[in-house]
């Protein structure tokens, strides 16, 4: 593959709707589109990797922080702990906060928000006129390292991902703002799991060994899903985590970030 000329990502600074007029603002980084082979089959034949076009979008440089989410629930009290309906957020929703409007101790404001449901994450992104990224957008951006758009073949890249998996989430996630990747986006690995908009489109069986079984009575549509590259297990494990979730679920290592289509300005 020829060397890619990496355009310096354009930084668009916008104001979170909930926090306009305050110091809070989010960096959205333009991620140029490109051809990308996902670990999940995207083409007509489920066992063959077909690169697809990913359209340009703008992604938050860092995950949404607890401080940003606090501003959101202050502006949208219906998303405060204890007020969000059970069907939208489980009992562990924001469980690490001291109160519905007080963060945990220890400088939590610039750490990624955790214990948030998909519904809450979606509502947050809507509040800043954005949406959750699709899996494809997230995977595309996260395939990069500091110098390459697609570093997935490098064992070192995989090693970094896995070393985070190996540490139980007993401590708070690190502060956001790690080294940006080639697109200028930070913290895609090694900080938190992140919700994607189509988390319930990443079919992975509760029993991951059941595969190649065309059980058309349960599923309609074309063919079975399978993971194309068996070496991509580091990414697969993220898919497994997302697949284990219901939309109201929260966990202590799961946060999110938002995107805007086409890198559009607000």
């Amino acid at each position: 593959m020829a060397l890619e000329i990496v355009r310096r990502a354009t930084r668009i600074v916008v104001c979170a709707a909930a926090a306009c007029g305050t110091a809070m603002a989010a960096d959205f980084i333009t991620v140029p589109g490109g051809r990308f082979a996902s670990v999940l089959p995207q083409g007509p034949v489920p066992t063959v990797s077909v690169p697809v076009e990913v359209a340009a979008f703008a992604m938050r440089a860092t995950p949404v922080t607890a401080g940003e989410f606090l501003a959101f629930v202050r502006a949208h009290p219906e998303w405060q702990r204890g007020r969000a309906p059970a069907i939208f957020a489980d009992r562990r929703y924001l469980v690490d906060w001291r109160s519905p409007v007080l963060l945990a101790d220890g400088g939590a404001a610039d750490r990624p928000v955790i214990n948030v449901s998909w519904f809450a994450a979606r509502a947050y992104c809507e509040s800043e006129r954005a949406r959750l990224p699709t899996w494809l957008e997230w995977e595309y951006t996260a395939a990069a390292d500091e110098t390459r758009r697609d570093a997935r073949a490098d064992p070192q890249w995989r090693r970094r991902i896995l070393s985070w998996y190996e540490r139980p989430a007993t401590t708070s996630p690190p502060r956001v703002g790690g080294a940006p990747n080639v697109f200028g986006v930070s913290d895609l690995h090694g900080v938190v799991w992140e919700w994607v908009d189509d988390f319930n489109a990443l079919f992975i069986a509760g029993d991951s060994r059941v595969q190649g079984d065309p059980d058309t009575a349960k599923f309609c549509g074309a063919g079975a899903l399978s993971v194309i590259d068996r070496d991509s297990y580091a990414v697969l494990m993220r898919i497994a985590l997302l697949s284990s979730l219901s939309a109201a679920d929260t966990t202590g290592s799961l946060g999110f970030r938002c995107v805007r289509p086409g890198g559009e300005r607000p």
């Binding site: 995207q42 007509p44 697809v52 189509d198 079919f203 599923f219 549509g221 074309a222 219901s246």
Partner: peptide
């Protein structure tokens, strides 16, 4: 709690 995804063919994979 329904899972679905749109395929390139325009068909959908979905839980039933």
């Amino acid at each position: 709690g329904v899972q679905y995804r749109r395929l390139a063919s325009g068909e959908f994979n979905h839980s039933s």
